Simulated scan of single mutants.
Amino acid sequence: MPERPRTRGSLRLTALAAALAAAVVLPSPASAAADAGDAGPPLETPVAELAAALSCSPDLRDAAKTPVLLVPGTAEASEYVYSWGYRKALREEGRPVCVIEALPGQGVGDIQTTAEYAVHAIRQMNDVAGRKVSVIGHSQGGLLAAWALRFWPDLPARVDDVVSLASPYGGSGFADVTCAAGVCPAFAWQFRPSAAWVGALTREPFPDGPELTSIGSRTDELIWPAPAATAYPGEVNVMVQDVCPLRAPGHMTLLADATAYALVRDALANPGAADADRVGTSSCGKAVFDAVDVPGMTRLLGLAGGLAEAVLTAPYTTSEPPLRPYARE
């Protein structure tokens, strides 16, 4: 699968510069961006609230492998979507893992506010680990990571990969249905294909540095039409059916799907984005990936009702939240 070309700078050191480098500790690219005052818009959410939502494994500070941040989606507590699958698998691989335990207000509010949790988490992980981190996000979780990297200039230097599962970068028709009566929760307005939020996210290329892999399913009942809904222009957008044509995971069962997991692992383990040809068809005979705790996976069963309840009980508005100044053209 073709990958977006990257421009990598090179630096020629003179003998004098080499001698100085031996005696001086140079700042990381992320630190340099922050020192230059290019850290992006100030966060409006109190730091204490951002920090309270983040939970990390104790080996983050001494990370021998790239740490991974897991970001849940709308109405998804990480305990129910990641503890029995991705968190377990990544820990078994020896990777430090941090999770945003749950999105504020179940993620039904303005995504511009919710994205600040991803901004803080990436910065905190990178600062503690002293190395780049990777991000895996489901549904809204992938959007939060992409928005954070688009509008906070210090973040791309801190991130290796962003891998999303069922994230509607192009908006979803389901949101159009939800808002058809002219009133719906803030996040649903922003999920529409015609939303100003979607336009602001995708009007520029994804920032250089991190790789973005968007993974979706043609049988996702919430994120459609496929594959347009999960496409970020210029980035890899792969359906599990591109690898295994007969698979039919839905929005939530994609979290356990063996082929989706194979694509995630390929993205994390190799330079560049996931490559469907490189992944091959070995996962096609499995329903779920090997590390899944199947009894724990049953926690997914209650999430559809939880999402419906979150949408029904959320504050409804008659229009999309206005774009904040930093996101306007």
Score class of each variant (00 low, 15 high):
Ala267Ile: 02
Thr45Asn: 02
Pro205Glu: 04
Ala32Thr: 14
Glu309Asp: 14
Trp152Asp: 03
Cys244Thr: 04
Arg247Cys: 03
Ala248Asp: 11
Ser31Trp: 14
Arg123Tyr: 06
Ala200Lys: 00
Glu92Lys: 11
Glu101Ile: 05
Gly109Tyr: 01
Val294Gln: 06
Val159Gln: 06
Pro67Arg: 04
Ala145Ile: 05
Glu204Phe: 12
Pro210Ile: 01
Pro5Ile: 14
Ala51Tyr: 12
Ala118Lys: 02
Pro156Cys: 10
Glu221Ser: 10
Phe289Met: 06
Lys88Cys: 02
Ala180Gly: 11
Pro42Ala: 00
Asn270Ile: 06
Ser55Thr: 14
Asp257Trp: 12
Pro153Cys: 09
Ala30Pro: 00
Ser283Gln: 09
Thr178Trp: 12
Tyr261Ile: 00
Asp62Arg: 13
Leu70Asn: 01
Leu144Val: 07
Asp161Thr: 12
Thr7Trp: 15
Gly109Arg: 03
Ala129Pro: 12
Tyr169Leu: 07
Gly130Trp: 13
Arg4Lys: 12
Thr219Ile: 04
Thr114Leu: 09
Pro233Lys: 01
Arg123Lys: 10
Gly170Glu: 04
Ala51Ser: 13
Gly109Met: 02
Ala229Arg: 03
Ala64Asp: 09
Glu309Thr: 13
Arg328Cys: 10
Val47Ser: 11
Thr259Trp: 07
Glu211Cys: 10
Ala51Gln: 12
Pro72Ser: 05
Val288Ile: 08
Tyr316Trp: 15
Pro249Leu: 06
Val264Tyr: 07
Pro5Gln: 14
Arg218Tyr: 03
Glu221Cys: 08
Arg131Ser: 12
Thr317Asn: 12
Leu54Met: 04
Gly137Cys: 04
Pro205Leu: 09
Thr230Gly: 14
Ala39Tyr: 09
Arg265Gln: 06
Leu11Ala: 15
Ala327Cys: 13
Leu70Pro: 09
Leu312His: 13
